[in-house]
Write a protein that binds this DNA or RNA. Sequence first.
DNA 1: GTCTATAGGCTGATAGAC
DNA 2: GTCTATCAGCCTATAGAC
Lengths: 237, 237
Amino acid sequence: MMRHSAPTTAPPPRERERRDPAATRQALLHAGAELFSERGFDGVPIEDIAQRAGVNKALISYHFRGKRGLYVAILQSAFAEMAARLEAIEAKAKNTRQALRAFLEAFAQLTRERPGFPTLFLREVLAGGIEPSVLPSLLAIIGVSRRLAERGAREGLFRRVDPLLLHFALVGSLVFFFSTEPARLRAAAQGLVPFAMPDSSAFVRYLEEITLRGLAPSGRTPGVAHPPSNRRKGARA
Amino acid sequence: MMRHSAPTTAPPPRERERRDPAATRQALLHAGAELFSERGFDGVPIEDIAQRAGVNKALISYHFRGKRGLYVAILQSAFAEMAARLEAIEAKAKNTRQALRAFLEAFAQLTRERPGFPTLFLREVLAGGIEPSVLPSLLAIIGVSRRLAERGAREGLFRRVDPLLLHFALVGSLVFFFSTEPARLRAAAQGLVPFAMPDSSAFVRYLEEITLRGLAPSGRTPGVAHPPSNRRKGARA
DNA sequence: GTCTATAGGCTGATAGAC
DNA sequence: GTCTATCAGCCTATAGAC
C-alpha cells in the first residue's frame, strides 16, 4: 500500500518487487513487532526480521541504526498508538460508564489489529529499565485510567479510590490476559487443558462488571445491563 | 546450609570455600532465577550466572546438562513452590473470604521472599510454548483459583461466575503488579513519575475489596472490614 | 566435582559494489 | 536505497587435567 515512486516506464525487472524506502521501513517495523513480541529482543536474530520483511538485513542498520534502534522505533510507535487511542476514547465518552467500557474494548480491539502489542508492552515494562523515549506515552496511558477513576468519583459512579489502584488492576489484567492468549489458545488446541478457556469478550465484560460493582458507592449495586439504563444518583444504604 | 561431606581434618586450603555439590546446584539455581527473571533466557550469558553463584561456568553443564536444563529446573521449582503454597492455603482456610485473602497475600509474600518469581512466571507464559514440565503445576495453580470461585458461590459469598474469569483477573493483575514493581520503584526513585506509586499491600487490599464487592450476590454489599465480622449466611436480594 | 582451555556456531555491524 | 561479502566478538558446550 502507498507506493508513489513507480517509474514512468516498465515495472522493475528484479525478481522481488521494488519498493519505497518508506515501505521498507514499514515492513521492518511490522515484522520486528511480531518477532520481538514473540521471542523478546535478545531472542530474535536480525536476519529473521529481514527475512519476514522481505528485505536485506543490512537495511536495518541503514534505516534504524542497528537492531536496538529498530526495537526502540517499534516500541515508540506501539506506545504512542495505544496512548492516542485511549485519549481519544476518553475525550469522546459521554460518561464514565461509557469511558470504562470503551477503555476495555480498546485493548481488545488493538489486540485484534496488532496481536503483538500487549506482549511488547509487557515485555518492556518487565525489562525494568523503561526506554526513556516511551515514558511520555506510558504516562499518558496511566493518565487516562487515573482520570477515569476521578471522573467516576465525580459523577457518583465510583466511590473514591486511589486512581492508580484502578489503573494497575485494570491494565494489569488486560495486558496479562491478552498477551497470554496465544499461549492459551495453543494449549487448548493441543488438548493440554481440561477446561474451556474464556474468550476475550467474556473477559472484558467480566472486568467491566466487577469494576462497576466493586467500585459502586456503598449500598448501591449498579445494574450492568447494556441498555442505557436510566441514570439517577442511586439509592443509599 | 546442609553440608555433609566436610572432611574430618582441616578446612580446605582453597581461596574460596569448598562446597557441597548440593550447595553448588543451589547457588546456580538461585543465581539463575534472579538473572533469568531480570533479563530473560536469551539475555543472560551462562558466565554471569556462574559468577554470581561463585562457581565455574562448566558446572552448569555438569549439573544441569546445559543452560536450558538449568532454566527448566528453575522454572519447575518456582512453579511447584507456588502451586504447593496456594494449595496449602486453600486447605487451611476456613471459608472463602479467608481463602481469598490468604491467596492474595501469598503472592505478595512469595514476591518478598523471591523477588524474581512473578517475572519468571510471566516471562514463561509470555514465551508461548509453555514448558511441558511445568504444566502440572500451572494447572494446579489454576485449579486453586477455580475452586476459590466455586467455593465462594457455594458459601453464598459470590454469585456464580466462570471461575476462570476470576482466575485471570486476579492472577493477571497480581503477577503484573508484582513483576513490574521493581521497574516502578526505580522510576519513582529517579523522580521520573509525577505521582506516588501504590504499595503492594494497598494493592492487595484493593483487589480483595473489589473482588468481594464485585462478586457479591445481587443486593448484598459485603463489609470488607478486617475484624472477623459475625459470619452468617448473608441476606439475599 | 571442579576448573582451564579451546573449539565451533551464531550474531550484529559495515565496507563497498551496484 | 539496496544488496553481497566479510569480520570480529561473544556465547555455549566439552575434553581433559586436577
